[in-house]
Amino acid sequence: EVPFKVVAQFPYKSDYEDDLNFEKDQEIIVTSVEDAEWYFGEYQDSNGDVIEGIFPKSFVAVQG
């Protein structure tokens, strides 16, 4: 069931425009499960802007 919160276990950096880049310990709200390997989610950056994109499930852990 979406949405749910995950926390980055590792930093994720990608050159693909659709990917969500983040640092370790970033909290991310997952709004869609793309497939067995990928989530789609969002978070607010330090400027208060909402950043969204896809990212690999293996880089995050589900909270709770």
Rank of each mutant, 00 (worst) to 15 (best):
V50H: 09
F40M: 08
T31K: 09
Q26R: 03
F40P: 00
K57I: 09
D49F: 13
I28W: 04
Y43N: 01
Q9W: 08
G48F: 05
N47T: 08
E52Y: 14
Q63N: 09
S46V: 12
A8G: 03
L20M: 08
F55S: 02
Y16Q: 13
V30E: 00
I29V: 11
V30F: 03
I51V: 13
K5C: 12
D18Y: 14
S58I: 10
V6Y: 02
A8C: 06
L20V: 00
W38I: 05
V60E: 02
V50Y: 07
S46H: 12
E52H: 13
S46D: 11
D45C: 10
D49I: 13
E34G: 10
V30T: 01
D45P: 02
V50E: 02
V7L: 06
F59A: 11
Y16T: 11
D25F: 10
N47P: 02
E23Y: 06
Y43V: 03
D25S: 06
V2D: 03
D25T: 05
I54R: 15
P11F: 06
G64I: 12
A8T: 03
S46E: 12
L20N: 00
E27R: 05
V7I: 13
S14W: 03
I54M: 14
D45K: 10
E23L: 07
E37Q: 09
V33M: 08
D35T: 08
S32R: 15
I54A: 11
Y43L: 05
K5H: 07
S46Y: 09
K5Y: 09
V6G: 01
S58M: 08
F22Q: 01
K24F: 05
E42K: 13
Y16N: 15
G53V: 04
F22A: 00
I29P: 01
S14Q: 03
D49Q: 13
D19L: 07
F55Q: 00
K24Y: 05
I54E: 04
I29M: 12
F22I: 01
F40A: 06
I51W: 14
D19K: 13
T31P: 02
G48H: 04
F55M: 00
P56L: 04
D25L: 06
E23T: 06
F10L: 11
Y39K: 01
F59W: 06
P11N: 08
F4S: 00
D15K: 11
E34V: 15
E17A: 13
K13V: 10
F4R: 02
N21V: 07
G53E: 00
V50M: 13
E37K: 08
E23I: 06
K24E: 06
F10A: 10
S32Y: 09
V6M: 02
A36L: 10
I29R: 06
D15C: 15
D25P: 02
T31D: 03
I51S: 07
P3G: 05
V62K: 11
N21W: 12
G53T: 01
D49Y: 12
F40S: 04
E23H: 06
D15L: 11
S32N: 11
G48M: 05
V50A: 05
V6H: 00
